[in-house]
């Protein structure tokens, strides 16, 4: 009897263990199955580089170049804002701040990660959007810039916490050795700690980017969703995620529009996969070296 229980428990744990892989596989297969159906009707090139997104017209025009560029612009902007601040924040928490302050700051950063994105979007809509409009004298504050700033807030916790781990992993002896040689604190951080943790830092940045590019709710609320090819940060943009979210409910299963939204999903999946792959590679590189 006891052996029987043992067997059942082992089985349950095994199933739970491989469940995530099975789910990922199933999701991926479903995504491919639905998304690839589109390419019976529309060419891959036409889809990826078409400049017009008019999915409900007759005949529909399904070019997602403005959407891809919209996502990339917002992500680029968020990266430019969040990486310097995030890196500096992690250095302060990991290397400089005294113990009691470090705990408070870490909790604060984690709390930032806990704010639901729709709340950030809503706050952005009523505070940031009018501000951006006023400061830059724009016709509207619903721009790529507003989206980038809000998304930077979402990327920061990821960047800070992973980078802080990377800094922690640098052996204490490195720092002591450096200080013993007469280096100042800043010299130690710049010449010893940061280079040793570089692969972890790259991973942190990549994961932050991955977080931003998949974000939906906040960007949908504050970027204006105009499907034009963006020429500056002060224009409205429409991201891939916002397009899927805004249009999914309307499509009838089995229509071209429906398949096109899944095809956008494939593009998004491919981008985040590559980003995560880079992050993973640099993390493993670090492990191999240390």
């Amino acid at each position: 009897m006891r052996k029987y229980y043992e067997f059942v428990v082992e089985g349950l744990i095994f199933i739970s263990g491989i469940a995530s892989i099975i789910f990922v596989l199933l999701i991926f297969i479903f995504l491919l199955k639905e998304g690839l159906m589109l390419f019976r009707q529309v060419g891959v090139f036409e889809f990826l580089f078409g400049e017009h997104w008019y999915p409900i017209s007759e005949p529909p025009r399904l070019g997602i170049l403005p959407l891809i560029l919209g996502s990339l612009w917002v992500t680029f902007g968020a990266t430019v804002i969040s990486v310097p601040i995030g890196v500096a924040c992690a250095i302060y928490i990991g290397e400089i701040a005294p113990g009691w302050l470090r705990e408070i700051l870490k909790a604060g950063v984690e709390l930032l990660a806990a704010i639901p994105s729709i709340v950030l979007g809503f706050i952005g809509l009523v505070t940031l959007v009018p501000l951006v409009k006023k400061i830059f004298h724009l016709p509207t504050g619903l721009t790529a810039l507003s989206g980038s700033i809000m998304l930077a807030f979402m990327a920061m916790p990821t960047i800070v916490s992973i980078m802080e781990d990377a800094l922690n992993a640098v052996p204490r002896g490195y720092r002591e050795g450096s200080v013993a040689m007469g280096a100042t604190k800043w010299q130690t951080i710049r010449r010893i700690v940061l280079p040793s943790a570089s692969s972890g830092i790259i991973a942190a940045v990549m994961l932050g980017i991955g977080r931003v590019i998949g974000e939906t709710m906040a960007v949908m609320m504050i970027t204006g969703n105009a499907a034009m090819i963006p020429k500056s940060f002060f224009q409205p943009v429409r991201t891939m995620t916002a397009t899927i979210a805004a249009e999914m409910g309307e499509t009838v299963q089995g229509s071209d529009h429906y398949f096109a939204l899944f095809a956008i999903g494939i593009v998004l999946f491919a981008i985040t996969f590559v980003v995560n792959l880079f992050a993973d590679m640099s993390l493993h590189q670090k492990q191999a070296r240390v």
Partner: peptide, 24 residues
């Protein structure tokens, strides 16, 4: 065959349009 220009902002609700017109 006319379409909404790509530069037209797509708002999520009537509420959002009213909000933006009130402010702008």
């Amino acid at each position: 065959t006319e379409e909404f220009a790509p530069s037209v902002l797509m708002m999520l609700s009537s509420q959002a349009i009213e909000q933006e017109v009130t402010d702008n």
